[in-house]
């Protein structure tokens, strides 16, 4: 769970600049399986493989390409990507502060946390306090890799979170799916009965109450299996199974012979 920085840069609004680190706010699934080779339980690694050269390609030899025709690509480098809007690739510039309750959850995409960078602790603390008091969040754009994200900066717990937002043209208008009202008569009475049930079922939101059943079942399965079968062990390096040096074997065998025997 090491909170590794995904990106480092600066939040700015007007003349204020706050150094920050972007870190993960969610981890998808903590049951992590490792793929192993069925033959000897050697661990497998996901790697890029060049079919033409029949070998693994080290990270230094991988580049990004845009497909312009069949098997035809234009290579685009990191530096070139940064050059598209250099001012946004190290800066999260807040353009507007908005009432966070005005941002429809429909726009929310992926959440992250922002942690203060060196020297930015005080200004970071101030922004958190001010956002809490005003119920406001900051709308900004910033570039991460090949994408420019529209983001909302807001407070989660005592931290700043950054949620990437969908652009408005990515959101399907609701009218596409809910048919316009047809004459079907009033639903007053049914609505009232539902509202009564809803009020009766009111609770506080406590995410820990809704356990992930799938996870729980997998953990239970693993527990059962660990009880009845010894875990397999992966070899720790690629080694042949040859004999040790002859003289060492002889010396050790001699020692073993002297033993009274293992009970």
């Amino acid at each position: 769970m090491a909170l590794q920085s995904i990106w480092t840069g600066t939040i700015t609004f007007s003349l204020v600049a706050i150094p920050v680190r972007l870190v993960k706010a969610v981890r998808p699934d903590r049951i992590s399986f490792r793929m192993l080779h069925a033959k000897d339980y050697s661990p497998l690694i996901r790697a890029f493989y060049c079919p033409d050269e029949d070998r693994m390609v080290p990270p230094g030899e991988i580049v990004r390409g845009y497909e312009v025709g069949p098997e035809q690509y234009i290579e685009v480098t990191e530096d070139e990507l940064d050059s598209v809007s250099p001012e946004r690739s190290r800066t999260i510039e807040i353009m507007d502060f908005v009432d966070v309750s005005d941002v429809d959850p429909l726009y929310y995409d992926r959440p992250y946390y922002l942690a203060p960078g060196r020297g930015g602790e005080k200004a970071y603390g101030l922004l958190v306090q001010v956002m809490l008091r005003t119920n406001r969040g900051g709308i900004a754009k910033f570039v991460l890799g090949e994408r420019e994200h529209l983001v909302l900066l807001r407070v989660s717990g005592a931290a700043l979170s950054l949620v990437t937002l969908h652009y408005s043209d990515e959101v399907v208008p609701a009218a596409e799916t809910v048919p316009e009202e047809k004459e079907e008569g009033g639903v007053e009475e049914e609505k009232d009965r539902m509202a009564r049930t809803i009020r009766r079922m009111e609770a506080r939101f406590d995410p820990a109450r809704y356990r992930d059943d799938r996870r729980r079942k997998i953990m239970a399965l693993l527990g059962r299996k660990e009880e009845v079968e010894a875990p397999v062990e992966a070899p720790t390096s690629f080694e042949d199974t040859q004999e040790g040096p002859g003289d060492l074997v002889a010396v050790l065998q001699e020692s073993v012979r002297k033993l009274k025997g293992v009970r």
């Binding site: 004999e243 040790g244 074997v249 050790l252 065998q253 073993v256 293992v262």
Partner: peptide, 15 residues
């Protein structure tokens, strides 16, 4: 590694 493996194998063969 060589020493410990050899010793383990010698013991395995003897017992």
């Amino acid at each position: 590694r060589r020493f410990s493996k050899t010793l383990a194998q010698v013991l395995e063969r003897s017992y």
